[in-house]
Computed example of a mutant assay.
Amino acid sequence: MESTDTNRLRYAALELRMALEALVYERAKHYATDTSWNKLSKWQPKKLLRLLLEVDPHADKDAIISIGEPDQEGQPASIMHCLGRERVLKLEEIDSFYDRLGSYLHTPTKAQADAGAPESAGKILAKCRELAAILKEVFESQIINSDFKISSEIKCVRCGAKVYGRLPPSMEDSVATCLECQAQYRVMSLPDGQAEWQPITQPLQCSNKECMEEAWIFQQDIKPGIKWKCRKCGQQSRIILGISPVLGDE
């Protein structure tokens, strides 16, 4: 990587790019029980990590793991001992480096050539050094691929596929996405270790003005052309685009 030879620097860029892929693939192994291997077979690290983030919003977050003996059963320990920090490769870092490094591995297109000179050896070296420093932090983590999870699953009411949700240790609500149809659910932690699932939907009124029954439609389905049948009067309704006149000084 310290060479000023552009061809050797391109090889260094290739090795660093492959390191990004390897790190994301390794992390994905811990999510095999949260989705299907078919979904995890995506080879582009950006797409794969985005998939992991749909399952677990903390998939690219750093973690510090500590232990301690509680002073009283059921209460947090007053003295904690740090076991180490895990430095995780983040989505924005992959976005910043993966395609950029890839651009060094191809002959410039005519449009790129017309736009100016190709990247100099100095620019390639600077980018490689920047990524190498990040990878060094990741590989020197005291803890690698930690995975403490409380998970829950349901059958998607929209397509029937299994939907997996992870509950954060903070007991806050989280959002789970069906990886087959993209339907979203709010997952709420209950005190007894159980979880309550609620579809994230929007109420839409029946087009029959004498009925006005509400139907709850998944938010990602609310777009022109979508149809539904009223469960009360049987009227079919659909969403359309419309144009109305502007009145007065509106």
Rank of each mutant, 00 (worst) to 15 (best):
S3I: 09
T6G: 03
A13N: 02
L14E: 02
E15F: 03
E15M: 06
M18H: 09
E21Q: 13
L23F: 01
V24F: 01
V24H: 03
Y25V: 10
H30Q: 12
Y31H: 06
D34C: 05
T35M: 03
W37H: 06
N38S: 03
N38V: 06
L40R: 07
L48G: 11
L52R: 04
L53H: 07
E54W: 00
E54T: 13
E54N: 09
V55M: 13
V55Q: 07
H58G: 10
D60A: 09
I64C: 12
I65F: 14
I65D: 07
I65Q: 13
I67R: 06
E69L: 14
D71E: 15
E73H: 12
Q75R: 13
P76K: 10
I79M: 14
M80H: 14
M80W: 15
H81K: 14
H81R: 12
H81A: 14
R85P: 00
E86A: 15
E86Q: 15
R87T: 15
V88C: 12
K90V: 13
L91M: 15
D95N: 14
D95V: 13
S96R: 11
S96M: 09
S96N: 06
F97T: 15
D99C: 11
S103W: 02
S103V: 10
P108T: 11
T109N: 04
A117E: 09
S120V: 07
K123T: 14
A126Y: 00
C128L: 12
L131R: 05
A132W: 00
A133L: 13
L135T: 12
L135D: 07
E137A: 11
V138I: 13
F139M: 05
E140M: 13
I143A: 13
I144W: 02
I144E: 08
S146F: 07
S151Q: 08
I154L: 12
I154Y: 01
C159L: 06
A161S: 14
R166L: 08
P168R: 06
M171G: 10
E172F: 11
D173F: 09
S174L: 12
A176L: 03
T177E: 11
C178K: 01
L179H: 12
E180K: 00
C181D: 03
C181S: 04
Q182G: 03
A183S: 10
S189G: 05
L190A: 07
L190K: 07
P191D: 09
W197Y: 02
T201Y: 00
Q205E: 07
Q205Y: 01
Q205F: 02
S207L: 03
F218L: 08
D221F: 00
I222T: 05
I222V: 11
W228K: 10
C230P: 11
C233Y: 04
G234I: 04
Q235F: 06
Q235W: 01
Q235I: 06
Q236L: 01
Q236C: 05
I240R: 02
P245T: 08
D249R: 08
E250D: 08
E250H: 02
